[in-house]
Simulated scan of single mutants.
Amino acid sequence: MGFLICACLLQLLFLCSPRVAAQSQPLSPARILDAMLQDYAYRAFVRPRTGIVYNATLPGNLAGIAVSALRLRSGSLRRKGFAEYFEFGIPTGVIVQPYVERVVLVYHNLRNWSDYYYPLPGYTYLSPVLGLLVYDAANLSAVGLEELSIVASGSPISVSFSNVRAVPPGGPAPRCVWFDLDGVPQFQDLEATNVCSTYRRGHFSIVVNSSEIAPAPAPSGTVVPPIPTAGGRAKGSSKTWKIAVSVVGAAIALGLLASLMLCLVRYKRDKKLEVMERNAEVGETLRMAQVGRTQAPVALGTRTQPVIENEYAA
């Protein structure tokens, strides 16, 4: 029984350890930026109204980036879509996963920060990186929210880029690039001139695999902005919740390890006692004798008679 308990504790320890390690992995600069822009986008909802685009105000260290927020009902988004949300054309049939009553569509235009947050070796950006992320609109004071997924069940979402740099004559054909939340790029052909399509949320741009095109000028002071602090807007902060879960997970793992060590010590002690009891059962049986009112074991006669030592004995 003790061995089974030890085995269960050991299995729980192995299951908990990878999760704690995964939660402790550092965030990439792009994910830190997403969290900051979500915070500033929600701050733009001074008097929130459904279906109205609100432009966010960013600090000086993010100069050049444009962020906007649009709140919609999930049912309205699926039935009606949203024809022109800057460069994004959202058709009907877009489904939010997991389902929430209202969503906020946060728009990003990274402009001259595109190369820094989404480096793509061997490629040159012909247009800025544009982002479309979706969040739950239940609490417009929340920061550090997890992104929701959207799936275009019918026609794809179109991305019509403007001010696209021209490719030199004879150069390679430009292509669309899509970055998921982990920053992994996927390439596809353009749907039309300067138009890309997607069925999911993420970041998008047009690139060309050519060293002949001069790269866009890098922004001054490429300093990664810090993770946004909640301050007085700490309600629903999932980043704080993740840290707390990591600490609790580490404490649970240490507790399981201590319980496992205690279990092993007890198991060895019980096995030792079991061996001693088994040896006692197969040993010599003592004769019982009446001592007062109780029965008590007494040893049999000694095997060797005692001899008094005497220096005069022969």
Rank of each mutant, 00 (worst) to 15 (best):
S114V: 03
L256Y: 01
S220K: 14
S162Q: 15
A22K: 13
S237E: 06
P226I: 06
A251S: 09
I52S: 14
R43E: 12
R73M: 13
G64V: 02
Y267T: 14
T302C: 10
A216I: 11
A7H: 12
S211F: 08
Q290M: 11
S127P: 06
R31V: 00
C8V: 15
E311T: 00
D34Q: 01
F45C: 04
V53W: 06
P219G: 06
E84A: 03
A299W: 10
Y40H: 10
S210A: 03
K268P: 05
P225C: 02
A313T: 00
R165W: 01
K80L: 05
V53F: 03
G255Y: 06
Y123F: 04
L15T: 14
R266E: 07
V159M: 10
G170C: 10
I243P: 09
K235H: 09
S153N: 11
S76H: 12
L12C: 12
L58N: 02
T302S: 10
P215T: 06
A251I: 14
G144W: 02
Q25W: 09
T50Y: 10
R49F: 02
P48H: 07
Y312L: 05
W178S: 04
L12Y: 12
L256M: 04
G231L: 09
G301F: 08
R278L: 11
A35H: 05
G232R: 13
S211I: 10
G2V: 07
S158C: 12
G75I: 09
N310R: 14
S74D: 05
V307L: 09
G154D: 10
N61C: 01
G81W: 08
S74L: 06
K242W: 04
G64Y: 02
S114A: 00
L27Y: 03
S17I: 12
V167K: 03
